[in-house]
Design a protein around this nucleic acid. Structure first.
Length: 875
RNA sequence: GCGAACUUGGCGGAAUGGUAGACGCACGAGACUUAAAAUCUCGAGUCCGUAAGGGCGUGCGGGUUCGAGUCCCGCAGUUCGCACCA
């Protein structure tokens, strides 16, 4: 290669595909199902995408980040599993079917093909031979098998329950999918409905899910806290309040009310008992009391949306019933139906202690119920302490509390529970906020639940030999409801047990089930069983999982549950799926509106200094907020368009360069153009080195000219700094250090003639290839091939090691301060004796000038860092 | 209401308690060019000063320290999560 045939610019179009083919041909990213014993394993996984149609910038950022980790770890000698697949079931496919008449399968597979194409163009080092799509029977059939094993293990339940019904999507939603009382997809207000549903008993694992959060030390604190609160452990007591005079017709279940409380210490402060509108006792009362029935109906109408909760005042209905009190045999307390009591928390009933709970106090004031203070805050006396409109929820000393008087809150809590247990009316319990996971959905495009309903045998599991239960393809979407239910023949089968005619379960699984175990399937994607034990045990847990914070609760909690349940059923050995978690920020963009207030795409807008105009009409454009790229605001930039214009490496470099990965970044035209310029610059500089610097032996350390020494030190410092930055996930800092080395290499051309400079420049250029490769793999390969032809692929090279001798500093610059203020700098030998350094610092002209006439009371010397003079205060 | 995080130039951001503003973007000046783009060089927190140099500077107010963007206390603002959880 000579300078003459150096192209003027880097032609990413041909170069990028060429190297992608080369990687493929050499199989450099392929790994076996069972990790090889001679290398440590590393499993890096990015949350797999929903195939919505087009890859968006958020995906590019997510996968670019994952690819940096994958390529870096590979270079560090790890055997790296880095798979990709598709979270391919879900509602948008059915919506497309209803709106455009295209079959969900066809729509989904076409989207996958388009997005796969884009991912391949971006040159990610993925194990494409492990690709899975959750909508294919090969995957969901295995999921059905897992479900049936969960069923056998007692981890599945079918029960009638109140469900969250989304009237627009015509389906059931999990509690987690109800946001502010509205469906998380449709936004429709959620109705309550009673249906027979399949549940996964996630609550059985609640203690484990909570406790093992502590072991996840490579998870963001934030996510762990969110999960902790979601699981919601609270310690308290359950106790029964018998009805004082149960009316005739009340069976045993109804003649006492069970209550959960975290404050058994405040039992003496009770003034009423409140039950939820959906409580069985409320229903019983309503049977004979039309006013109660009307009140209950009203509560249901109100719903539990944020607005309703915030604006609704505490309201109640006195049932006229009374309960007796375990500690106060002579007293009785009224039973109210109250709108602020939730049926799905605790037992759907509570005892009201107005002095110790703000809601109870508001309620008591409204209905003139007594307020008895039972906890005396420190520093108050029983005479002076009164409760007016603020309840005291803190700790203190018990008063008005019989045998608890004088105890601290903590002591009283324990003692109250002991008494309840001794009386046989209650026990200390732990209550969880977490509910079992309802997984039934009345949808077509999902994994069929492998159950057959028989009139005589009940719910019968589909026998293994009949798995997978495949979705029929000939379905119609011409009416609302579930197409599986409407299908003329699909659901009619014989009962596997008795052979009589029976019907299939027509509900399908919540799509969160699909994404709860895919990371395990990736370890052996073609296995005939759901997992191959050796592969799963060998690769799991995922060492680094990367994705958006929006999955902090739902997906991550479900995946953790599945892992524990799969361990219990013998599929896996690990009890946590992801040992490291990284949540990356969003990709944002300015939004634009035209004179009529309509949203504009970035490509329709021309930025003009401070403002912007429409690219055709020239009319003024309003620049809106910088916010998450979204179709509705039209502030999107299509990755494909960027790859076409700038190439994959530029796109990758830009999404990694500016902001720390965990923070939101702003996509700007200027920014991506700047990255494009850097790509060209690096190309020119390294090509020049390849053409002009002969391959020389390393110069001997002693007599290198200064410029050579400096460049070599910069090179080795950069190796150390980039390595450190990648380990710390601060890719933006790695990028900054690589800019510096590039500038240093460009600068060195001025001293090209010096002895050893050819070697130093080649060394720097080679290092740049290796260090930029995780971010810009195509350019790195192209330059490396030019620089060191015949030496193989960068993708196969080891990560460079910094030479400790060249990391050692030869001269240090120290700051000289007077009273902590910078007044000058001096040079010193590394670790030079303090006396000599201080003397020189004192002699530094500016320092000497300012010290004149001052009395130095203290001289502080921090080796290789600073000298600080403390002087006596004037006067 | 509860909880968490964050707050540094025009912008994104950097900084093991030790020279704040690395690196990039945008900007300004210059070189090259018929011209433009590209490229290269230089400049830049702010105020005073011709300069040397000095004052002030990391949301606000305190504290610890020889020294604080960094640690502690209080306040404000922003963002996120949860929320009638008994």
């Amino acid at each position: 290669m000579t300078a003459d045939d150096t192209p003027a610019s880097y032609d990413f179009r041909s170069v990028e595909t060429r190297w992608q083919q080369e990687w493929d041909k050499e199989g450099v990213f392929t790994v076996p199902d069972v990790p090889p014993a001679d290398k440590p394993k590393y499993y890096v996984l990015e949350m797999f995408p929903y195939p919505s149609g087009q890859l968006h910038m958020g995906h590019v950022r997510n996968y670019a980040l994952g690819d940096v980790v994958a390529r870096y770890k590979r270079a560090r000698g790890f055997s790296v599993l880095h798979p990709m697949g598709w979270d391919a079931f879900g509602l948008p496919a059915e919506n497309a079917a209803r709106e455009r008449g295209v079959h969900p399968k066809e729509w989904t597979l076409a989207n996958i093909a388009a997005m796969r194409e884009t991912l391949k163009r971006l040159g990610f080092s993925l194990n494409w031979d492990r690709e899975i799509a959750t909508c294919l029977p090969d995957y969901y059939g295995k999921q059905q098998k897992i479900f049936l094993d969960f069923l056998k293990a007692g981890l599945v339940d079918r029960r009638e329950s109140w469900v969250n019904w989304d009237p627009i999507d015509n389906t059931v939603l999990a509690n987690e999918q109800v946001v502010d009382g509205k469906g998380w997809r449709s936004g429709a207000p959620i109705e309550k409905k009673k249906l027979s549903q399949w549940f996964l008993k996630i609550t059985q694992f609640a203690p484990d899910l909570l406790d093992s959060l502590k072991t996840l030390d490579r998870w963001p604190e934030r996510v762990r806290t969110m999960q902790e609160r979601w699981i919601g452990r609270s310690d308290g007591a359950r106790l029964r309040f018998p009805l004082a005079h149960p009316p005739a017709g009340f069976n045993e279940d109804l003649n006492a009310v069970e209550v959960f409380t975290t404050r058994p210490d405040t039992l003496f402060g009770m003034s009423f008992l409140a039950i939820a509108a959906d409580h069985p006792l409320a229903a019983k009362v309503a049977e004979t009391n039309p006013e109660a029935a009307e009140f209950i109906a009203e509560c249901r109408r109100m719903g539990t949306s944020v607005e309703a909760v915030e604006t609704a005042e505490k309201r109640g209905f006195d049932t006229g019933l009374k309960v007796s009190h375990p500690f106060l045999p002579d007293a009785t307390f009224p039973v109210w139906i109250a709108n602020f009591v939730l049926m799905d928390y605790g037992t759907g009933a509570l005892f009201g202690c107005p002095s110790g709970d703000q809601r109870d106090l508001d309620f008591a004031h409204k209905y003139n119920l007594p307020v008895v203070p039972v906890v005396l805050p420190a520093g108050e006396t029983q005479d002076s302490f009164t409760i007016t409109d603020k309840a005291w929820t803190g700790d203190g000393t018990m008063i008005n509390s019989g045998f608890l008087d004088g105890r601290t809150t903590d002591e009283a809590r324990k003692e109250a529970i002991q008494r309840l247990e001794a009386l046989g009316v209650g026990t200390g319990v732990v209550n969880w906020r977490l509910r079992d996971w309802g997984v039934s959905r009345q949808r077509y495009w999902g994994c069929p639940i492998p159950i057959i309903h028989c009139e005589t045998c009940g719910a019968v599991p589909v026998p293994d030999a009949q798995l997978p239960v495949e979705l029929p393809e000939d379905v119609t979407f011409d009416r609302p409801g579930n197409p599986l239910d409407h299908h003329p023949t699909w659901k009619h089968v014989d009962c596997p047990k008795c052979g009589k005619p029976a019907t299939r379960e027509t509900d399908t699984f919540d799509t969160f089930v699909d994404s709860s175990w895919y990371f395990a399937r990736f370890t052996a994607p073609h296995a005939a069983t759901p997992t191959n034990k050796a592969a799963a045990d060998g690769w799991l847990a995922v060492d680094q999982y990367i994705g958006g914070i929006e999955h902090a609760i739902l997906h991550l909690l479900y995946a953790r549950f599945f892992t524990k349940a799969m361990k219990a059923t013998g599929y896996l050995d690990v009890s946590e799926p992801f040992s490291g978690l990284f949540t990356q920020g969003m990709v944002n963009h300015e939004s634009y509106k035209d004179v009529n207030g309509a949203w504009l795409y970035p490509e329709e807008v021309v930025r003009t200094g401070t403002g912007a105009t429409h690219h055709e009409t020239g009319e003024p454009v309003t620049i809106g907020r910088v916010e998450k790229m979204s179709k509705s605001k039209r502030n999107t930039v299509a990755p494909v368009a960027i790859i076409d214009r700038f190439g994959a490496d530029t796109a990758r470099w830009f999404v990694l360069s500016d902001s720390p990965p965990e923070r939101d970044m702003e996509w700007t035209e200027a920014g991506v153009a700047g990255s494009g310029r850097f790509v060209q610059r690096l190309f020119r500089i390294v090509r020049q080195v390849a053409a002009n610097c002969p391959v020389d032996a390393a110069p001997s350390a002693g007599d290198m000219p200064e410029a050579v020494d400096t460049l070599r030190r910069t090179t080795h410092r950069t190796i150390a700094a980039v390595t450190e930055a990648l380990e710390a996930f601060t890719v933006n800092v790695a990028v900054a250090r690589l800019h510096e080395l590039t500038s240093a290499l460009a600068d060195a051309e001025k001293k090209a003639g010096e002895d050893g400079m050819a070697f130093a420049r080649r060394e720097a250029a080679r290092t740049l290839c290796l260090l930029t490769a995780p971010m810009m793999p195509h350019l790195a390969e192209e330059l490396f091939a030019t620089l060191e032809p015949g030496k193989g692929l960068v993708a196969q090279q080891a990560w460079p090691e910094a030479n400790p001798e060249l990391l050692a500093v030869t001269r240090v610059k120290l700051a000289v301060q007077i009273m902590g203020k910078l007044r000058g700098t001096i040079e010193a030998e590394p670790d030079e004796a303090a006396d000599a350094v201080i003397a020189r610092a004192e002699a530094e002209p500016n320092v000497a000038r300012l010290l004149e006439g001052q009395r130095i009371v203290k001289r502080i010397h921090v080796p290789n860092r600073i000298v600080n003079f403390v002087v006596a205060k004037a006067g």
